[in-house]
Amino acid sequence: MRPWELLDTASVPGEGSELRLYRRGDEYSIKSGLVELMNSRVHGSEDALAELACRQLVDHKQSKVLIGGLGMGFTLAAALQNLGAEAELEVAELVPAVVAWNRTLLAEVAGKPLNDKRVSVHEGDVGQLIRSQSSHYDAILLDVDNGPEGLTRKENDALYSPAGLKAAMRALRPGSLLGVWSISPDRGFSERLKRAGFAVEEHRARARGRHGGGRHMIWLGKKGQA
């Protein structure tokens, strides 16, 4: 078997941990320590996060969508496919190198979604961006770390805390959606969503889409109209 080739490394701002980008043939992997955070052959559940949320938006043409976590661009690419020509998508990515990789080394992996004129990029903490807005987004999609039980950055836990969910509720327009991806189920998080005022749907999605793989968890939390 062909060995993995290390293409680049990047420091995570504020904590000093390192991300490493690897390639083996046409397969790419991003790791933190011994943990593989994402793989270009395993993105079915990331696609499903965007598809499930965007299909429920009342106005697909002019929706404003925030995506927390760029990764390899698959969630963004799926959202673009399910939204209209006048939609606005903002991607918040903490690690500048991940944005650079998506414009260069990883550009072809998800079909160059950053080149779409509907997309803008915020290089910074998605939590700070959420807290700065009020009744602004039609959907917020969080694909950060490995979900509510983060493995790589402790600060990510704040996104999924009661205070973080209340901030997301404030940033959303009436009738809009919060979508959350997780590597595994978490009954406690479902209850936190409900206590924050969301009507909750739980979905399981295959890691490799139609080709199977493990089942990952997706929550959709809907904000009421009033």
Score class of each variant (00 low, 15 high):
Met1Ser: 15
Pro3Asn: 09
Glu5Phe: 03
Ala10Lys: 09
Pro13Asn: 00
Gly14Ile: 04
Glu18Tyr: 01
Glu18Ser: 10
Gly25Asn: 05
Gly25Leu: 07
Lys31Glu: 13
Lys31Phe: 11
Gly33Phe: 07
Ser40Leu: 00
Ala48Lys: 00
Leu49Met: 06
Ala53Gln: 10
Ala53Asp: 02
Arg55Tyr: 08
His60Met: 13
Lys61Thr: 13
Ser63Cys: 09
Ser63Val: 03
Ile67Val: 07
Leu70Asn: 10
Gly71Lys: 04
Phe74Ala: 06
Thr75Ala: 09
Thr75Val: 11
Ala78Met: 08
Asn82Met: 09
Glu86Ser: 14
Glu93Arg: 01
Pro96Cys: 01
Arg103Thr: 12
Thr104Asn: 15
Val109Met: 04
Lys112Phe: 14
Val119Cys: 00
His122Trp: 10
Asp125Phe: 00
Gln128Met: 12
Leu129Ser: 03
Ser134Cys: 13
Ser135Glu: 15
Ala139Arg: 02
Ala139Met: 04
Asp143Val: 00
Asn146Gly: 08
Leu151Met: 11
Glu155Leu: 10
Asp157Ser: 10
Gly164Glu: 02
Ala171Trp: 00
Ala171Gln: 04
Leu172Asn: 02
Arg173His: 09
Leu177Thr: 01
Pro185Asn: 04
Arg187Gly: 14
Ser190Asp: 09
Leu193Phe: 04
Leu193Ala: 05
Arg195Phe: 11
Ala196Asp: 00
Phe198Gln: 06
Phe198Tyr: 09
Arg208His: 11
Arg208Gly: 07
Gly214Arg: 15
His216Gly: 05
Gly221Ile: 08
Gln225His: 14
